[in-house]
Design a protein around this nucleic acid. Structure first.
Lengths: 334, 334
DNA sequence: TTGAAAGCGCTAACAC
DNA sequence: GTGTTAGCGCTTTCAA
């Protein structure tokens, strides 16, 4: 298309004067500036991102990797981060990684190639593979989960919600409602976050003097459908609980949906608690743990900017407290 | 960090040979190639995106602008597009524009600066402002809505679902169920899509010999909350309908939620139909119009690739037919 | 098969 | 206040 040389020729000035006029940096007379801007408009000029970046080493873009856009949970996080990044003149580009490590690695590679100045990285499965890629990139990265390498040689920050504590809150709440048999619908326990949530359930039952029976643990994949499938298994099992803690709202919704389809009453037959406290949990009157997504995003973006603009190089971490929001789905004795 | 010169020095070859070895294009002996790749690994090399782009004029990235990530509606579209783009080795970067034209213009500007090779552009409000920016960019763009400039000088494609027809399907269905007073919960009628949907309702009532009374039109903003608010207005109005057509599922959900909160029975008191046919509509047994999001995304990506890779320059458009999915919320006489 | 060299379009230090 | 110039890191043509 058009470039500064074309404009320079048009107005009879040198390319550097044109660059100065356009950028606003460096000396340039009012008269020249006016001519340049006019010519730029005429030839429909806009700077080439790649050329700018190659020189300035700045893209003013942040990559935001999320495993799952369909899950309303991430909305708050994105909003929180976006609000901060916008203030610094940064654009947020979302990368949908589909819970897939290959996709994550692709985006880490894009970061490494300096397609963005930094990355906010959400994943359900931080592991040796993606973390070492993050470290190798040597680029500013903030995780939205807890992760510390064994050898403590991490180049990233993290801000995390204490999900372990969150599941404990939900579990304790059901215990307090008088439930003695409380099932847990979680995800793949080999994934870090899933394991944490599972542990919260288990430990809280132990704290309460109850038995965290493994036959009460059901594995879903954080979708409505998997919650639905677990519900069927639970109802038809030989060890039917009275309380249900689901590791996210979608699975809780799936559970409730199965009950609706089969004449089972919530909270009469099952007291149900989910996690994430999305708008949908309020529609369905679902007791849920507020994971304070917006604060996570906000803090993540702030940490990132400290590295990108402030040049901080040491690791910083932030912990955020979850909150329980009680609604009808768990109130048995009313 | 590291570049091809560093590698060249390390292995005692020229930068151009290193470049050939790395890219796989051009001649290079097996031996040299091996040495280069090894050295590259050693110095933790990865190419600089900006430099590559500056030469090659290719980013291998597509920008995907969506007004609202919180709305599950877009999930299918993104998935459909992503599946196609992936096959071509392209990355999809999502840009969340918050229903905000300023954000849209920012992303169009990023495209214009060639931050990506093309753009899929979703908006509820295609207008002179954003369309002329799209045209001015002269970059490959596909809209997911119908839009033709009066003067027919468009540089973009579009693929659209016939929402007008969709609302007609929903409206006709309620008419067929015997309803005579059917309200419409829509969005801001100044937005093109909102107006189309409104027209579908209006025209179908007229086709059915009914009166499209303006007092039966309620304005929301496509959120659950606005559906809830409209429900309250509808219930308390002096002209209470028996059928409700909502311009999307979220507003229908809001409507249903209000009813739930106030002892009003669906479908007994109101027959409700929404649009988008998301997973949530099936949870709530909501009759809804399937907008075939995945096909939209798929077709949009294909059109885009025809321009980006195939060099097509003339305009192409694709129309997709909606489908009505009937569920309990609208079946009055069962 | 390899290397030299000329850019891609912009920035910024430096000289005028 | 303006112009010259030397890159940024890669690609690619052309000559060797």
């Amino acid at each position: 298309m058009s470039n500064i040389y074309e404009i320079a020729k048009k107005v009879g000035l040198s390319p550097s004067t044109v660059a100065r006029a356009l950028s606003g940096r460096g000396y340039c007379s009012e008269e020249s500036r006016k001519k340049v801007l006019e010519a730029a408009k005429e030839v429909n000029y806009s700077p080439t991102h790649a050329a700018k970046t190659l020189k300035s080493k700045r893209t003013n873009k942040i990559l935001f990797c999320i495993p799952d856009i369909y899950n309303p949970f991430y909305f708050g996080m994105i909003k929180g981060a976006n609000d901060v990044l916008e203030k610094y003149g940064y654009y947020t580009l979302l990368c949908y990684t589909k819970h897939n490590i290959e996709e994550e690695l692709k985006m880490i590679e894009a970061l490494r190639e300096k397609y963005g100045d930094g990355m906010i990285f959400v994943s359900f499965n931080f592991c040796e593979k993606n973390i070492s890629a993050v470290n190798a990139s040597k680029m500013p990265v903030v995780l939205t989960n807890r992760y510390d390498s064994p050898r403590g040689e991490d180049y990233f920050d993290y801000v995390y919600i204490d999900t372990y504590k969150g599941v404990q809150l939900a579990t304790r709440h059901l215990v307090d409602q008088g439930h003695r048999k409380i099932a847990f619908i979680g995800g793949n326990l080999e994934e870090q976050t899933s394991f944490e949530r599972y542990s919260g359930w288990k430990d809280e039952l132990i704290n309460s003097g109850l038995d965290p029976d493994d036959s009460l643990v059901y594995e879903g994949d954080y979708t409505i459908d998997s919650g639905y499938a677990c519900a069927e298994k639970i109802v038809k099992s030989s060890n039917v609980p009275t309380g249900i803690v689901a590791a996210n709202d979608l699975m809780a919704i799936g559970f409730i949906r199965y009950c609706g389809d089969n004449g089972i009453k919530i909270p009469h037959d099952f007291a149900v608690a989910g996690m994430d406290n999305t708008d949908f949990s309020s529609v369905l009157k679902l007791t849920s743990v507020d994971m304070r997504q917006e604060e996570i995003g906000l803090n993540a973006a702030s940490l990132l900017m400290e590295r990108v603009l402030g040049g901080r190089t040491y690791k910083k971490t932030i912990r955020i407290e979850p909150r329980l929001v009680v609604r009808e789905s768990s109130i048995t004795n009313k």
